[in-house]
Design a protein around this nucleic acid. Structure first.
Lengths: 184, 184
DNA sequence: CCCCAGCGTTCGTCAAACCGAACGAATCGA
DNA sequence: TCGATTCGTTCGGTTTGACGAACGCTGGGG
C-alpha cells in the first residue's frame, strides 16, 4: 500500500523524535540547518508545510535520511490479503500487479523461498535492528508475525513486520512462501 | 554522509520520469493531484521548491511512494526450479529457506504480487536501464523472460532477468506470482 | 480551410513559508 | 540577588510558492 498518513503530523513527530535523539535544542538544530528557529518551532508544533529544501537541510543537519522525516515508522504489522491492495494499471487487461512494498536505496533486500512443515512453532530471535520482513504465502497456511501479534495467512496473502523483535513462524499445513528480508 | 545531492534537479527528473511512465500529460496530472498545471510545469523545469504537501499529492496521484520522487535512481536469465537452489540450514527441521538473490545497498527493490490471465502474450517495453526482475510463481503456469529467451514456470519456480530489454509475459493458465522489481 | 480541444509555458496576484527581532521563562555563576 | 546565557514561543515584514488567466502551439474534424 501507499502512505495513508497525512504527512503533516508525521513530520512534526519525526522531527521532534530525531532531534531529541540527537540531543540538541531547537535553536541548535536551526543553527546547523541554517534556518530560523521560529520555523522549526512551528514545524514541530505541526503548523506549517515545509518546502523540500527546508526539510532536506533538516535531514542533513540531523544526519538522517530524508525519508525518515517523512514516512512513519514502519514498525507496525501490515497485512494485505490476496486480491486486496492498490492495483496498478496495466496496458493489457489480463495483467494486474499489486504493490506490496516499495524499497529505497541504502536498504538491502534478500530474496528467499521458504518451506515450512507443520509442527511445533518456530520462534525466531530478533535480527539486527532496522530489519524488516516481507512474506507472501505461495501455498498452504502459516501463522506468523511478532510475538503476541501473529496472523494466519493463506496463498497470496502478504504480511510485513519488523524483524528486530522476536517473532514466530508456524505452518498450519505444509506451506511455502516468498520471504524478502530487508536490512538497513 | 547521506544524500549530498541537491534534491532540486532530482525531483524534476523523477517527476517527469514517473509521469511519462504513467503515460499522462502535465495537465492531466495536475488535475488528478489538485494542483495548478503551472506549478507542475515549473517543477518539471527544475524551477521551484515544492512544499511537502504539494509533492505528496503528486506521489499519490502518480501512485508511487513519496521517496521515489525525492531520492535519485542509482544479465543474464537465471532459473531456480522449485526445490532446487542452495538450501539454508534452519534451526528446526521443518523449516527450509532457499536464497534466490542477495540484495545490496543502493539498489531499490519493490515488491509486487502479479496476477495474469491466459490470453495473448503481454510484451513489456524495456524499463529504465539497470533494472532487474525477479519472479517467483505462486500458482498456475506462466511463460516469461526476455524476448527470444522465455521459460515456462510453475508454482515455486524462480526466474530473474534484466528488465531493461523488451520482455514477455504469458499466462498459460490463470496464474499469480511474486515480482520483485529491482532498480539501481 | 478554419475551428476547436488539449497541450505546455509565461505572467501577475495572493497567501503563506520563512525570517529576524523581541518576549517571558529557566538555569547558572558571581 | 542580580546579570548573563540559552531556551522555546510569538509577532510583523519580506520573500516565494501556488494559483488562475492568458498565451502560442499542435492535431483532428467538420
Amino acid at each position: 500500500m501507499q502512505q495513508p498518513a497525512p504527512p503533516l503530523a508525521t513530520i512534526a513527530a519525526a522531527l521532534r523524535r530525531e532531534r531529541e535523539r540527537a540531543g540538541i535544542s531547537i535553536a541548535e538544530l536551526a543553527r546547523r540547518a541554517g534556518l530560523a528557529k521560529s520555523t522549526l518551532s512551528q514545524l514541530e508544533a505541526g503548523t506549517g508545510n515545509p518546502s523540500i529544501e527546508t526539510l532536506w537541510s533538516l535531514g542533513v543537519a540531523l544526519g538522517v535520511p530524508f525519508s525518515r522525516l517523512v514516512e512513519p515508522l514502519e514498525t507496525q504489522v501490515r497485512v494485505v490479503r490476496a486480491g486486496e491492495g492498490p492495483r496498478l494499471q496495466a496496458d493489457e487487461a489480463d495483467f494486474v500487479a499489486t504493490l506490496l512494498a516499495a524499497g529505497s536505496p541504502h536498504t538491502r533486500r534478500d530474496l528467499y523461498v521458504m518451506e515450512l512443515q507443520p509442527g511445533p512453532a518456530r520462534d525466531a530471535a530478533a535480527h539486527i535492528p532496522g530489519s524488516v520482513e516481507h512474506i507472501v504465502v505461495g501455498g498452504g497456511r502459516i501463522r506468523t508475525g511478532p510475538d503476541g501479534d501473529t496472523v494466519e495467512l493463506g496463498p497470496g496473502d502478504y504480511i510485513t513486520f519488523p524483524g528486530d523483535v522476536p517473532h514466530h513462524y508456524e505452518a498450519l499445513e505444509p506451506a511455502w512462501a516468498v520471504l524478502v528480508m530487508e536490512h538497513r
